[in-house]
Design a protein around this nucleic acid. Structure first.
Length: 574
RNA sequence: GCGGUCGUAGCUCAGCUGGAUAGAGUACCAGACUACGAAUCUGGUGGUCGCAGGUUCGACUCCUGCCGACCGCGCCA
Protein backbone atom coordinates (compact mmCIF):
# COMPACT_ATOMS: atom_id res chain seq x y z
CA UNK A 1 0.00 0.00 0.00
CA UNK A 2 2.84 2.35 0.80
CA UNK A 3 4.22 1.31 -2.59
CA UNK A 4 1.16 2.88 -4.22
CA UNK A 5 1.90 6.15 -2.46
CA UNK A 6 5.55 5.97 -3.41
CA UNK A 7 4.76 5.32 -7.06
CA UNK A 8 2.29 8.15 -7.19
CA UNK A 9 4.50 10.60 -5.36
CA UNK A 10 7.62 9.77 -7.34
CA UNK A 11 5.91 10.27 -10.67
CA UNK A 12 4.49 13.60 -9.57
CA UNK A 13 7.84 14.73 -8.22
CA UNK A 14 9.57 13.57 -11.39
CA UNK A 15 7.40 15.77 -13.55
CA UNK A 16 8.64 18.82 -11.69
CA UNK A 17 12.34 17.98 -11.34
CA UNK A 18 15.03 16.64 -13.60
CA UNK A 19 15.27 13.39 -11.67
CA UNK A 20 13.97 10.15 -13.16
CA UNK A 21 10.95 8.62 -11.50
CA UNK A 22 12.75 5.39 -10.62
CA UNK A 23 15.48 7.22 -8.76
CA UNK A 24 13.00 9.20 -6.73
CA UNK A 25 11.11 6.03 -5.93
CA UNK A 26 14.35 4.48 -4.68
CA UNK A 27 15.17 7.46 -2.54
CA UNK A 28 11.80 7.83 -0.87
CA UNK A 29 11.90 6.47 2.63
CA UNK A 30 9.53 5.62 5.42
CA UNK A 31 10.22 7.99 8.31
CA UNK A 32 10.54 6.33 11.68
CA UNK A 33 8.27 8.79 13.38
CA UNK A 34 4.86 9.98 12.26
CA UNK A 35 6.05 13.50 13.03
CA UNK A 36 8.07 13.31 9.84
CA UNK A 37 5.02 12.42 7.81
CA UNK A 38 4.30 9.33 5.77
CA UNK A 39 7.07 9.58 3.22
CA UNK A 40 10.31 11.49 3.20
CA UNK A 41 12.49 12.61 0.34
CA UNK A 42 16.15 13.39 1.14
CA UNK A 43 17.53 16.02 -1.20
CA UNK A 44 21.25 15.76 -0.34
CA UNK A 45 22.24 14.27 -3.67
CA UNK A 46 20.91 17.32 -5.44
CA UNK A 47 23.20 19.63 -3.51
CA UNK A 48 26.25 18.99 -5.66
CA UNK A 49 24.78 19.63 -9.07
CA UNK A 50 22.60 22.49 -7.93
CA UNK A 51 25.44 23.90 -5.83
CA UNK A 52 23.06 24.81 -3.07
CA UNK A 53 22.69 23.83 0.54
CA UNK A 54 20.29 20.91 1.10
CA UNK A 55 17.91 22.83 3.42
CA UNK A 56 17.55 25.51 0.78
CA UNK A 57 16.75 22.96 -1.92
CA UNK A 58 14.18 21.38 0.35
CA UNK A 59 12.55 24.73 0.93
CA UNK A 60 12.41 25.49 -2.75
CA UNK A 61 10.93 22.12 -3.56
CA UNK A 62 8.38 22.58 -0.83
CA UNK A 63 7.34 25.92 -2.32
CA UNK A 64 7.15 24.38 -5.74
CA UNK A 65 5.02 21.38 -4.83
CA UNK A 66 3.02 22.64 -1.88
CA UNK A 67 -0.65 21.93 -2.42
CA UNK A 68 -0.02 20.44 -5.84
CA UNK A 69 0.37 16.76 -5.08
CA UNK A 70 -2.70 14.62 -4.98
CA UNK A 71 -3.75 13.31 -1.57
CA UNK A 72 -0.86 15.11 0.08
CA UNK A 73 -2.13 17.34 2.81
CA UNK A 74 1.10 18.88 3.89
CA UNK A 75 4.70 19.19 2.83
CA UNK A 76 7.32 20.32 5.29
CA UNK A 77 11.01 20.86 4.82
CA UNK A 78 13.17 19.84 7.73
CA UNK A 79 16.87 20.19 7.11
CA UNK A 80 17.63 18.36 3.92
CA UNK A 81 14.39 16.43 4.00
CA UNK A 82 11.10 16.97 2.33
CA UNK A 83 8.39 15.35 4.42
CA UNK A 84 5.04 14.44 2.95
CA UNK A 85 1.93 14.00 5.02
CA UNK A 86 -0.95 12.37 3.22
CA UNK A 87 -4.66 12.88 3.66
CA UNK A 88 -5.57 10.62 6.57
CA UNK A 89 -8.97 9.59 5.31
CA UNK A 90 -7.45 8.66 1.98
CA UNK A 91 -4.89 6.44 3.72
CA UNK A 92 -7.46 4.77 5.94
CA UNK A 93 -9.53 3.88 2.91
CA UNK A 94 -6.52 2.70 0.96
CA UNK A 95 -5.85 0.29 3.79
CA UNK A 96 -9.48 -0.56 4.29
CA UNK A 97 -10.08 -1.51 0.67
CA UNK A 98 -6.98 -3.67 0.53
CA UNK A 99 -8.25 -5.50 3.60
CA UNK A 100 -11.73 -5.76 2.09
CA UNK A 101 -10.29 -7.37 -1.04
CA UNK A 102 -8.50 -9.81 1.19
CA UNK A 103 -11.51 -10.78 3.28
CA UNK A 104 -13.67 -11.16 0.20
CA UNK A 105 -11.05 -13.50 -1.20
CA UNK A 106 -10.13 -11.30 -4.15
CA UNK A 107 -6.44 -10.77 -3.37
CA UNK A 108 -4.79 -11.76 -0.13
CA UNK A 109 -3.43 -8.80 1.78
CA UNK A 110 -0.10 -7.66 0.43
CA UNK A 111 0.00 -10.27 -2.33
CA UNK A 112 1.53 -9.53 -5.72
CA UNK A 113 0.14 -10.53 -9.09
CA UNK A 114 0.93 -14.14 -10.08
CA UNK A 115 4.27 -14.53 -11.85
CA UNK A 116 5.16 -17.10 -14.40
CA UNK A 117 8.18 -18.26 -12.43
CA UNK A 118 8.55 -21.20 -10.13
CA UNK A 119 10.40 -21.36 -6.85
CA UNK A 120 11.44 -24.82 -5.72
CA UNK A 121 12.26 -24.71 -2.04
CA UNK A 122 13.92 -27.52 -0.17
CA UNK A 123 13.22 -27.43 3.54
CA UNK A 124 12.91 -29.49 6.71
CA UNK A 125 14.56 -32.53 5.12
CA UNK A 126 15.02 -34.75 8.19
CA UNK A 127 17.03 -37.95 8.23
CA UNK A 128 14.88 -41.05 8.26
CA UNK A 129 14.85 -43.03 11.50
CA UNK A 130 16.09 -40.11 13.55
CA UNK A 131 13.84 -37.88 15.64
CA UNK A 132 13.80 -34.24 14.72
CA UNK A 133 15.90 -32.03 16.94
CA UNK A 134 15.37 -28.41 17.78
CA UNK A 135 17.67 -27.71 14.83
CA UNK A 136 15.11 -29.16 12.45
CA UNK A 137 12.66 -26.61 13.75
CA UNK A 138 14.68 -23.94 11.99
CA UNK A 139 15.00 -25.90 8.77
CA UNK A 140 11.28 -26.52 8.85
CA UNK A 141 9.84 -23.19 9.95
CA UNK A 142 12.21 -20.87 8.11
CA UNK A 143 11.47 -22.94 5.03
CA UNK A 144 7.74 -22.85 5.50
CA UNK A 145 7.81 -19.09 6.06
CA UNK A 146 10.02 -18.40 3.03
CA UNK A 147 7.76 -20.62 1.01
CA UNK A 148 4.72 -18.60 2.10
CA UNK A 149 6.59 -15.39 1.35
CA UNK A 150 7.43 -16.61 -2.15
CA UNK A 151 3.77 -17.34 -2.56
CA UNK A 152 2.92 -13.79 -1.51
CA UNK A 153 5.22 -12.42 -4.18
CA UNK A 154 3.27 -14.22 -6.87
CA UNK A 155 5.66 -17.09 -7.52
CA UNK A 156 4.52 -20.59 -8.29
CA UNK A 157 5.94 -22.61 -5.45
CA UNK A 158 7.00 -26.20 -4.96
CA UNK A 159 7.70 -26.93 -1.31
CA UNK A 160 9.97 -29.94 -1.22
CA UNK A 161 10.82 -32.16 1.71
CA UNK A 162 14.00 -33.89 0.65
CA UNK A 163 14.38 -36.78 3.05
CA UNK A 164 17.73 -38.25 4.00
CA UNK A 165 16.68 -41.78 3.21
CA UNK A 166 19.87 -43.28 1.79
CA UNK A 167 23.27 -44.21 3.09
CA UNK A 168 25.17 -46.84 5.07
CA UNK A 169 23.24 -46.05 8.21
CA UNK A 170 20.22 -47.80 6.70
CA UNK A 171 22.28 -50.88 6.06
CA UNK A 172 23.31 -50.83 9.68
CA UNK A 173 19.79 -50.32 10.85
CA UNK A 174 18.46 -53.07 8.61
CA UNK A 175 21.13 -55.40 9.88
CA UNK A 176 20.36 -54.46 13.47
CA UNK A 177 16.69 -55.08 12.88
CA UNK A 178 16.85 -58.37 11.04
CA UNK A 179 19.98 -60.16 12.16
CA UNK A 180 21.71 -58.58 15.13
CA UNK A 181 21.19 -60.99 18.04
CA UNK A 182 21.28 -58.29 20.70
CA UNK A 183 18.69 -56.36 18.76
CA UNK A 184 16.33 -59.28 18.52
CA UNK A 185 16.63 -60.06 22.22
CA UNK A 186 15.65 -56.63 23.46
CA UNK A 187 12.12 -56.77 22.12
CA UNK A 188 11.78 -53.32 20.63
CA UNK A 189 8.14 -52.39 20.52
CA UNK A 190 7.63 -51.98 16.81
CA UNK A 191 3.88 -52.42 16.97
CA UNK A 192 2.92 -49.87 19.61
CA UNK A 193 5.70 -47.32 19.34
CA UNK A 194 7.47 -48.02 16.09
CA UNK A 195 9.36 -44.75 15.81
CA UNK A 196 10.69 -44.85 19.35
CA UNK A 197 11.70 -48.45 18.78
CA UNK A 198 13.50 -47.54 15.59
CA UNK A 199 15.46 -44.77 17.23
CA UNK A 200 16.32 -46.90 20.25
CA UNK A 201 17.60 -49.60 17.92
CA UNK A 202 19.72 -46.99 16.13
CA UNK A 203 21.20 -45.72 19.37
CA UNK A 204 21.85 -49.19 20.80
CA UNK A 205 23.44 -50.44 17.64
CA UNK A 206 25.78 -47.48 17.37
CA UNK A 207 26.83 -47.91 20.95
CA UNK A 208 27.51 -51.59 20.39
CA UNK A 209 29.39 -50.87 17.18
CA UNK A 210 31.75 -48.55 18.97
CA UNK A 211 33.03 -51.48 20.99
CA UNK A 212 32.70 -53.97 18.20
CA UNK A 213 33.70 -52.55 14.80
CA UNK A 214 32.69 -55.80 13.15
CA UNK A 215 29.10 -54.68 13.45
CA UNK A 216 29.80 -51.66 11.29
CA UNK A 217 31.25 -53.90 8.62
CA UNK A 218 28.15 -56.06 8.70
CA UNK A 219 26.03 -52.95 8.37
CA UNK A 220 28.04 -51.83 5.36
CA UNK A 221 27.56 -55.21 3.74
CA UNK A 222 23.85 -55.01 4.33
CA UNK A 223 23.80 -51.60 2.73
CA UNK A 224 25.59 -53.02 -0.27
CA UNK A 225 22.83 -55.63 -0.56
CA UNK A 226 20.28 -52.83 -0.42
CA UNK A 227 22.09 -50.96 -3.18
CA UNK A 228 22.17 -54.09 -5.29
CA UNK A 229 18.43 -54.41 -5.03
CA UNK A 230 18.02 -57.14 -2.41
CA UNK A 231 14.24 -57.30 -2.01
CA UNK A 232 14.31 -58.43 1.61
CA UNK A 233 16.45 -55.54 2.75
CA UNK A 234 14.51 -53.14 0.62
CA UNK A 235 11.34 -54.22 2.34
CA UNK A 236 12.85 -53.43 5.72
CA UNK A 237 14.18 -50.10 4.46
CA UNK A 238 10.73 -49.17 3.18
CA UNK A 239 9.27 -50.04 6.54
CA UNK A 240 11.72 -47.66 8.24
CA UNK A 241 10.65 -45.01 5.77
CA UNK A 242 6.96 -45.53 6.51
CA UNK A 243 7.48 -45.46 10.25
CA UNK A 244 9.46 -42.23 9.99
CA UNK A 245 7.03 -40.56 7.63
CA UNK A 246 4.21 -41.31 10.02
CA UNK A 247 6.05 -39.66 12.86
CA UNK A 248 7.01 -36.64 10.76
CA UNK A 249 3.43 -36.29 9.62
CA UNK A 250 2.38 -35.94 13.24
CA UNK A 251 4.95 -33.21 13.89
CA UNK A 252 4.19 -31.35 10.68
CA UNK A 253 0.53 -31.43 11.66
CA UNK A 254 1.40 -29.86 14.99
CA UNK A 255 3.52 -27.22 13.27
CA UNK A 256 0.96 -26.64 10.55
CA UNK A 257 3.54 -27.28 7.89
CA UNK A 258 2.82 -28.73 4.48
CA UNK A 259 4.79 -29.82 1.45
CA UNK A 260 3.94 -30.14 -2.20
CA UNK A 261 6.33 -33.00 -2.61
CA UNK A 262 8.13 -35.44 -0.38
CA UNK A 263 11.11 -36.99 -2.04
CA UNK A 264 14.06 -38.99 -0.77
CA UNK A 265 17.69 -38.86 -1.72
CA UNK A 266 17.19 -42.40 -3.01
CA UNK A 267 15.12 -40.91 -5.82
CA UNK A 268 18.37 -40.05 -7.58
CA UNK A 269 20.03 -43.46 -7.24
CA UNK A 270 19.57 -44.30 -10.89
CA UNK A 271 20.34 -40.79 -12.12
CA UNK A 272 23.80 -40.40 -10.64
CA UNK A 273 25.74 -42.26 -13.30
CA UNK A 274 24.28 -40.14 -16.09
CA UNK A 275 25.05 -36.99 -14.11
CA UNK A 276 28.69 -37.99 -13.79
CA UNK A 277 28.77 -38.63 -17.53
CA UNK A 278 27.24 -35.26 -18.21
CA UNK A 279 29.88 -33.52 -16.12
CA UNK A 280 32.52 -35.53 -17.92
CA UNK A 281 31.11 -34.64 -21.33
CA UNK A 282 31.45 -30.99 -20.48
CA UNK A 283 35.12 -31.64 -19.91
CA UNK A 284 35.07 -30.74 -16.25
CA UNK A 285 36.06 -34.04 -14.71
CA UNK A 286 39.64 -34.56 -13.65
CA UNK A 287 41.42 -37.30 -11.77
CA UNK A 288 43.00 -36.54 -8.47
CA UNK A 289 44.37 -39.18 -6.10
CA UNK A 290 42.22 -41.77 -7.80
CA UNK A 291 39.02 -39.79 -7.36
CA UNK A 292 37.07 -37.92 -10.03
CA UNK A 293 36.81 -34.26 -9.15
CA UNK A 294 35.88 -30.90 -10.62
CA UNK A 295 38.51 -28.28 -9.95
CA UNK A 296 37.03 -24.94 -9.00
CA UNK A 297 38.73 -21.61 -9.32
CA UNK A 298 39.59 -19.15 -6.63
CA UNK A 299 39.99 -20.33 -3.12
CA UNK A 300 37.53 -23.18 -3.25
CA UNK A 301 38.75 -26.74 -2.85
CA UNK A 302 37.80 -29.15 -5.64
CA UNK A 303 34.41 -30.83 -5.62
CA UNK A 304 34.63 -34.60 -5.46
CA UNK A 305 32.19 -36.26 -7.83
CA UNK A 306 33.28 -39.88 -7.61
CA UNK A 307 35.26 -41.64 -4.94
CA UNK A 308 38.29 -43.72 -5.88
CA UNK A 309 36.18 -46.86 -5.37
CA UNK A 310 33.72 -45.55 -7.94
CA UNK A 311 30.93 -44.61 -5.54
CA UNK A 312 29.20 -41.26 -5.80
CA UNK A 313 28.89 -38.65 -3.08
CA UNK A 314 26.68 -36.04 -1.48
CA UNK A 315 27.71 -33.42 -4.03
CA UNK A 316 27.00 -35.73 -6.97
CA UNK A 317 23.50 -36.30 -5.69
CA UNK A 318 22.88 -32.60 -5.13
CA UNK A 319 24.04 -31.76 -8.64
CA UNK A 320 21.76 -34.41 -10.10
CA UNK A 321 18.93 -33.15 -7.96
CA UNK A 322 19.47 -29.49 -8.88
CA UNK A 323 19.34 -30.33 -12.57
CA UNK A 324 16.17 -32.27 -11.99
CA UNK A 325 14.61 -29.48 -9.98
CA UNK A 326 15.32 -27.07 -12.81
CA UNK A 327 14.59 -29.23 -15.85
CA UNK A 328 12.09 -31.68 -14.46
CA UNK A 329 10.28 -29.65 -11.84
CA UNK A 330 10.55 -26.43 -13.86
CA UNK A 331 12.10 -24.49 -11.01
CA UNK A 332 13.44 -21.09 -12.00
CA UNK A 333 14.72 -20.35 -8.50
CA UNK A 334 16.10 -23.14 -6.33
CA UNK A 335 16.22 -22.50 -2.62
CA UNK A 336 17.92 -24.71 -0.05
CA UNK A 337 17.03 -24.10 3.57
CA UNK A 338 19.97 -25.86 5.16
CA UNK A 339 22.31 -25.11 8.07
CA UNK A 340 25.20 -22.71 7.58
CA UNK A 341 27.69 -25.51 8.20
CA UNK A 342 26.89 -26.68 4.66
CA UNK A 343 28.04 -23.39 3.21
CA UNK A 344 31.07 -24.69 1.35
CA UNK A 345 29.17 -27.65 -0.02
CA UNK A 346 26.56 -25.45 -1.64
CA UNK A 347 29.08 -22.99 -2.97
CA UNK A 348 30.84 -25.91 -4.61
CA UNK A 349 27.67 -27.42 -6.03
CA UNK A 350 26.49 -24.08 -7.44
CA UNK A 351 29.94 -23.46 -8.90
CA UNK A 352 29.94 -26.82 -10.65
CA UNK A 353 26.50 -26.06 -12.09
CA UNK A 354 27.79 -22.73 -13.30
CA UNK A 355 30.80 -24.39 -14.94
CA UNK A 356 28.44 -26.82 -16.60
CA UNK A 357 27.04 -23.80 -18.36
CA UNK A 358 23.76 -23.47 -16.50
CA UNK A 359 22.95 -19.80 -16.20
CA UNK A 360 20.26 -20.64 -13.68
CA UNK A 361 23.02 -21.53 -11.23
CA UNK A 362 22.96 -17.91 -10.17
CA UNK A 363 19.36 -18.34 -9.14
CA UNK A 364 20.27 -21.10 -6.70
CA UNK A 365 20.36 -19.90 -3.12
CA UNK A 366 21.54 -21.50 0.05
CA UNK A 367 19.19 -20.06 2.64
CA UNK A 368 21.54 -20.75 5.51
CA UNK A 369 20.69 -20.69 9.18
CA UNK A 370 22.84 -20.71 12.31
CA UNK A 371 23.03 -23.66 14.64
CA UNK A 372 21.45 -24.30 18.00
CA UNK A 373 24.16 -24.76 20.60
CA UNK A 374 24.53 -25.29 24.31
CA UNK A 375 26.09 -22.40 26.12
CA UNK A 376 28.49 -24.59 28.07
CA UNK A 377 29.24 -27.56 25.82
CA UNK A 378 28.74 -26.02 22.41
CA UNK A 379 27.51 -27.99 19.44
CA UNK A 380 24.55 -30.33 19.68
CA UNK A 381 25.11 -33.85 18.50
CA UNK A 382 22.56 -36.58 18.00
CA UNK A 383 25.31 -39.16 18.15
CA UNK A 384 26.62 -38.04 21.50
CA UNK A 385 23.11 -37.79 22.81
CA UNK A 386 23.37 -34.15 23.85
CA UNK A 387 20.55 -32.81 21.80
CA UNK A 388 17.19 -31.19 22.41
CA UNK A 389 14.33 -32.90 20.61
CA UNK A 390 11.73 -30.82 18.89
CA UNK A 391 8.95 -32.91 20.34
CA UNK A 392 10.07 -32.17 23.89
CA UNK A 393 10.22 -28.46 23.23
CA UNK A 394 6.77 -28.42 21.66
CA UNK A 395 5.25 -30.50 24.44
CA UNK A 396 6.75 -28.40 27.19
CA UNK A 397 5.54 -25.25 25.55
CA UNK A 398 2.03 -26.58 25.06
CA UNK A 399 1.97 -27.70 28.69
CA UNK A 400 3.01 -24.26 29.83
CA UNK A 401 0.35 -22.66 27.64
CA UNK A 402 -2.22 -24.94 29.27
CA UNK A 403 -1.07 -23.89 32.70
CA UNK A 404 -1.25 -20.20 31.86
CA UNK A 405 -4.72 -20.60 30.36
CA UNK A 406 -5.79 -22.37 33.54
CA UNK A 407 -4.60 -19.37 35.53
CA UNK A 408 -5.87 -16.58 33.34
CA UNK A 409 -8.84 -17.91 31.50
CA UNK A 410 -10.12 -21.12 33.11
CA UNK A 411 -13.55 -20.91 31.48
CA UNK A 412 -12.16 -21.01 27.97
CA UNK A 413 -13.58 -23.72 25.76
CA UNK A 414 -11.26 -25.72 23.49
CA UNK A 415 -8.42 -25.25 25.96
CA UNK A 416 -6.41 -28.07 24.42
CA UNK A 417 -6.54 -26.66 20.92
CA UNK A 418 -5.72 -23.14 22.03
CA UNK A 419 -2.86 -24.28 24.24
CA UNK A 420 -1.48 -26.00 21.19
CA UNK A 421 -1.82 -22.93 19.01
CA UNK A 422 -0.23 -20.69 21.61
CA UNK A 423 2.46 -23.12 22.73
CA UNK A 424 3.58 -23.94 19.22
CA UNK A 425 3.22 -20.32 18.16
CA UNK A 426 5.58 -19.23 20.93
CA UNK A 427 8.27 -21.66 19.83
CA UNK A 428 7.96 -20.87 16.16
CA UNK A 429 7.84 -17.11 16.60
CA UNK A 430 10.82 -17.20 18.90
CA UNK A 431 12.75 -19.09 16.26
CA UNK A 432 11.72 -16.85 13.37
CA UNK A 433 12.06 -13.49 15.04
CA UNK A 434 15.83 -13.26 15.03
CA UNK A 435 18.16 -13.23 12.06
CA UNK A 436 18.39 -16.77 10.73
CA UNK A 437 22.14 -16.65 10.19
CA UNK A 438 22.95 -16.30 13.87
CA UNK A 439 23.78 -19.19 16.13
CA UNK A 440 21.40 -19.68 19.03
CA UNK A 441 22.35 -20.73 22.52
CA UNK A 442 19.51 -22.94 23.62
CA UNK A 443 17.81 -21.68 26.75
CA UNK A 444 14.54 -23.05 28.09
CA UNK A 445 13.61 -19.75 29.76
CA UNK A 446 13.89 -17.85 26.55
CA UNK A 447 12.10 -20.41 24.43
CA UNK A 448 9.24 -20.63 26.90
CA UNK A 449 8.75 -16.90 27.32
CA UNK A 450 5.17 -15.84 26.58
CA UNK A 451 5.58 -12.20 27.49
CA UNK A 452 7.09 -9.19 25.81
CA UNK A 453 8.26 -9.63 22.25
CA UNK A 454 6.87 -13.08 21.66
CA UNK A 455 4.46 -15.12 19.60
CA UNK A 456 1.75 -15.10 22.26
CA UNK A 457 2.04 -11.32 22.41
CA UNK A 458 1.14 -11.05 18.74
CA UNK A 459 -1.59 -13.65 19.09
CA UNK A 460 -2.95 -11.86 22.13
CA UNK A 461 -3.07 -8.60 20.25
CA UNK A 462 -5.10 -10.23 17.46
CA UNK A 463 -7.36 -11.86 20.07
CA UNK A 464 -8.12 -8.50 21.62
CA UNK A 465 -9.11 -7.19 18.21
CA UNK A 466 -11.39 -10.15 17.69
CA UNK A 467 -12.89 -9.65 21.11
CA UNK A 468 -13.82 -6.06 20.38
CA UNK A 469 -15.26 -6.98 17.01
CA UNK A 470 -17.34 -9.72 18.64
CA UNK A 471 -18.79 -7.26 21.12
CA UNK A 472 -19.91 -4.84 18.48
CA UNK A 473 -23.14 -6.01 16.95
CA UNK A 474 -23.61 -3.75 13.94
CA UNK A 475 -22.13 -3.59 10.49
CA UNK A 476 -18.79 -1.94 9.98
CA UNK A 477 -18.60 -0.19 6.62
CA UNK A 478 -15.45 -0.52 4.57
CA UNK A 479 -15.45 3.12 3.61
CA UNK A 480 -14.59 5.30 6.60
CA UNK A 481 -15.98 8.78 6.68
CA UNK A 482 -13.70 10.69 8.97
CA UNK A 483 -9.96 10.91 9.47
CA UNK A 484 -8.50 9.41 12.64
CA UNK A 485 -6.14 12.05 13.89
CA UNK A 486 -4.73 11.04 17.25
CA UNK A 487 -1.04 10.29 17.14
CA UNK A 488 -1.65 6.64 18.09
CA UNK A 489 -4.17 6.22 15.29
CA UNK A 490 -1.93 7.87 12.75
CA UNK A 491 0.99 5.72 13.80
CA UNK A 492 -1.04 2.54 13.58
CA UNK A 493 -2.40 3.36 10.12
CA UNK A 494 1.05 4.27 8.86
CA UNK A 495 2.45 1.06 10.29
CA UNK A 496 -0.24 -1.10 8.70
CA UNK A 497 0.34 0.46 5.27
CA UNK A 498 3.88 -0.92 5.24
CA UNK A 499 2.79 -4.55 5.16
CA UNK A 500 3.19 -5.30 1.43
CA UNK A 501 6.62 -3.74 1.36
CA UNK A 502 7.66 -5.83 4.36
CA UNK A 503 6.51 -9.01 2.65
CA UNK A 504 8.53 -8.05 -0.37
CA UNK A 505 11.83 -7.28 1.36
CA UNK A 506 11.30 -10.21 3.67
CA UNK A 507 11.19 -12.52 0.67
CA UNK A 508 14.00 -10.78 -1.21
CA UNK A 509 16.30 -11.40 1.72
CA UNK A 510 14.74 -14.75 2.56
CA UNK A 511 14.34 -13.39 6.07
CA UNK A 512 11.10 -14.17 7.88
CA UNK A 513 12.59 -12.22 10.79
CA UNK A 514 11.75 -8.96 9.00
CA UNK A 515 8.10 -9.90 8.99
CA UNK A 516 8.20 -11.12 12.60
CA UNK A 517 9.80 -7.88 13.78
CA UNK A 518 7.28 -5.88 11.80
CA UNK A 519 4.36 -7.69 13.43
CA UNK A 520 5.78 -6.76 16.82
CA UNK A 521 5.85 -3.13 15.71
CA UNK A 522 2.23 -3.35 14.63
CA UNK A 523 1.27 -4.83 18.00
CA UNK A 524 3.05 -2.06 19.85
CA UNK A 525 1.25 0.53 17.77
CA UNK A 526 -2.03 -1.23 18.39
CA UNK A 527 -1.41 -1.58 22.12
CA UNK A 528 -0.83 2.11 22.38
CA UNK A 529 -3.86 2.96 20.25
CA UNK A 530 -5.99 0.61 22.28
CA UNK A 531 -5.15 2.07 25.65
CA UNK A 532 -5.49 5.68 24.60
CA UNK A 533 -8.52 5.60 22.34
CA UNK A 534 -11.90 4.28 23.37
CA UNK A 535 -13.53 2.21 20.70
CA UNK A 536 -16.83 0.86 22.01
CA UNK A 537 -17.79 3.97 23.90
CA UNK A 538 -21.42 5.12 23.75
CA UNK A 539 -20.35 8.73 24.08
CA UNK A 540 -18.34 8.43 20.91
CA UNK A 541 -19.89 9.81 17.77
CA UNK A 542 -20.93 7.06 15.38
CA UNK A 543 -18.52 7.92 12.57
CA UNK A 544 -15.47 7.90 14.81
CA UNK A 545 -16.57 4.66 16.37
CA UNK A 546 -17.01 3.00 12.99
CA UNK A 547 -13.70 4.32 11.72
CA UNK A 548 -11.94 2.97 14.81
CA UNK A 549 -13.69 -0.35 14.54
CA UNK A 550 -12.62 -0.61 10.94
CA UNK A 551 -9.06 0.08 12.03
CA UNK A 552 -9.33 -2.71 14.57
CA UNK A 553 -10.66 -4.98 11.84
CA UNK A 554 -7.79 -4.10 9.55
CA UNK A 555 -5.26 -4.71 12.31
CA UNK A 556 -6.80 -8.08 13.07
CA UNK A 557 -6.77 -9.19 9.44
CA UNK A 558 -3.22 -8.06 8.97
CA UNK A 559 -1.93 -9.76 12.12
CA UNK A 560 -3.70 -13.00 11.28
CA UNK A 561 -2.37 -12.88 7.71
CA UNK A 562 1.12 -12.05 8.95
CA UNK A 563 1.14 -14.87 11.46
CA UNK A 564 -0.19 -17.24 8.85
CA UNK A 565 2.66 -16.31 6.57
CA UNK A 566 5.06 -17.21 9.35
CA UNK A 567 3.24 -20.49 9.74
CA UNK A 568 1.64 -19.52 13.05
CA UNK A 569 -2.01 -19.90 13.93
CA UNK A 570 -4.12 -17.15 15.34
CA UNK A 571 -6.58 -18.33 18.01
CA UNK A 572 -10.07 -16.84 18.41
CA UNK A 573 -9.67 -16.55 22.16
CA UNK A 574 -6.86 -17.33 24.55
C1' G B 1 47.19 -21.83 7.16
C1' C B 2 42.94 -20.75 3.79
C1' G B 3 37.68 -19.59 3.31
C1' G B 4 32.77 -18.24 5.44
C1' U B 5 29.65 -15.98 9.32
C1' C B 6 28.92 -13.16 13.65
C1' G B 7 30.52 -9.03 17.45
C1' U B 8 24.91 -3.12 19.14
C1' A B 9 22.27 -1.49 26.75
C1' G B 10 23.73 -6.07 32.65
C1' C B 11 21.23 -10.27 29.72
C1' U B 12 18.54 -11.73 24.83
C1' C B 13 18.15 -9.36 20.42
C1' A B 14 15.86 -5.44 16.23
C1' G B 15 17.85 -1.84 12.98
C1' C B 16 14.79 -2.88 5.36
C1' U B 17 18.22 -1.11 -0.65
C1' G B 18 23.75 3.96 3.63
C1' G B 19 19.91 8.91 6.02
C1' A B 20 16.86 12.79 10.77
C1' U B 21 18.09 12.52 18.59
C1' A B 22 20.90 4.15 17.77
C1' G B 23 15.41 0.94 19.12
C1' A B 24 12.65 -3.34 21.59
C1' G B 25 12.18 -7.18 25.17
C1' U B 26 14.11 -8.68 29.85
C1' A B 27 16.03 -7.25 34.57
C1' C B 28 15.68 -3.04 38.09
C1' C B 29 12.67 1.48 39.93
C1' A B 30 7.82 4.15 39.75
C1' G B 31 2.70 4.13 38.01
C1' A B 32 -2.30 2.09 35.49
C1' C B 33 -7.44 -3.44 36.15
C1' U B 34 -15.58 -1.97 39.69
C1' A B 35 -12.72 -0.46 32.48
C1' C B 36 -13.06 -2.48 24.69
C1' G B 37 -9.21 -9.00 27.75
C1' A B 38 -3.13 -6.61 32.68
C1' A B 39 -0.19 -12.85 28.09
C1' U B 40 -1.32 -5.50 28.39
C1' C B 41 -0.14 -0.26 28.74
C1' U B 42 2.67 4.58 30.63
C1' G B 43 7.21 6.70 32.53
C1' G B 44 12.57 6.18 34.44
C1' U B 45 17.76 4.13 34.86
C1' G B 46 20.96 1.78 31.15
C1' G B 47 25.10 2.44 24.65
C1' U B 48 32.59 5.73 22.78
C1' C B 49 27.26 0.17 17.84
C1' G B 50 34.64 -5.06 19.22
C1' C B 51 39.16 -1.75 17.87
C1' A B 52 41.76 1.33 14.09
C1' G B 53 41.67 3.48 9.42
C1' G B 54 39.09 4.55 4.57
C1' U B 55 34.87 5.85 1.01
C1' U B 56 30.62 9.48 1.43
C1' C B 57 27.06 15.55 2.14
C1' G B 58 25.91 11.43 5.68
C1' A B 59 28.33 4.85 8.15
C1' C B 60 25.56 0.26 13.15
C1' U B 61 25.02 -0.45 7.70
C1' C B 62 29.90 -0.29 2.35
C1' C B 63 35.74 -1.22 1.90
C1' U B 64 40.68 -2.55 4.33
C1' G B 65 43.48 -4.20 8.58
C1' C B 66 43.53 -6.07 13.57
C1' C B 67 41.17 -8.59 17.95
C1' G B 68 37.51 -12.13 19.72
C1' A B 69 33.66 -16.17 19.01
C1' C B 70 31.64 -19.86 15.86
C1' C B 71 31.47 -22.95 11.26
C1' G B 72 33.89 -25.33 7.16
C1' C B 73 38.29 -27.09 4.35
C1' G B 74 39.16 -34.35 -1.42
C1' C B 75 37.01 -39.45 -1.22
C1' C B 76 30.55 -38.92 5.52
C1' A B 77 25.79 -36.67 4.62
Amino acid sequence: MIDILKAQLSSELASGTQLPKEQIYQLLENPKSIEHGHLAFPVFMLAKELKKAPPLIAQELKAKFDGKISHVEQITSVGGYLNFTFDLKYLQNLLSHAVADSTSGKVRLGYQKPKNERVVIDYSSPNVAKPMSIGHLRATMIGQAVRNLADSQGYQVTGLNYLGDWGVQFGKLAYAYSEWPAGKNKNYDFTQKPFEALYQLYVDFHKAAEENPELDAKGSLTFKRLEEGDKEIEKIWKMFLDISLNEYKRIYGLLNVNFDLIQGESFYNDKLESTVELINKKGLLAESDGAQVVFLDDDMPPCIIKKSDGASLYATRDIASAIHRHDGMKGDHLLYVVGVDQNLHFRQVFKVLEKMGYDWAKRCHHVAFGMYRFKDIGKMSTRKGNVIFMDDVLNKSIELAEKIIEEKNPDLSDKKLIAQQVGVGAIVFNDLSSDRIKNVDFDWDRVLDFEGDSGPYVQYCAVRCKSILRKFEGEIPVETEIPLASSEEKTLVKQLLLYPEILSISYKNFKPSFLAQYLLEVCKAFGSFYTHNKILDDNLDEKTKLARLRLVQCTETLLTEGLKTLGIQSPQKM
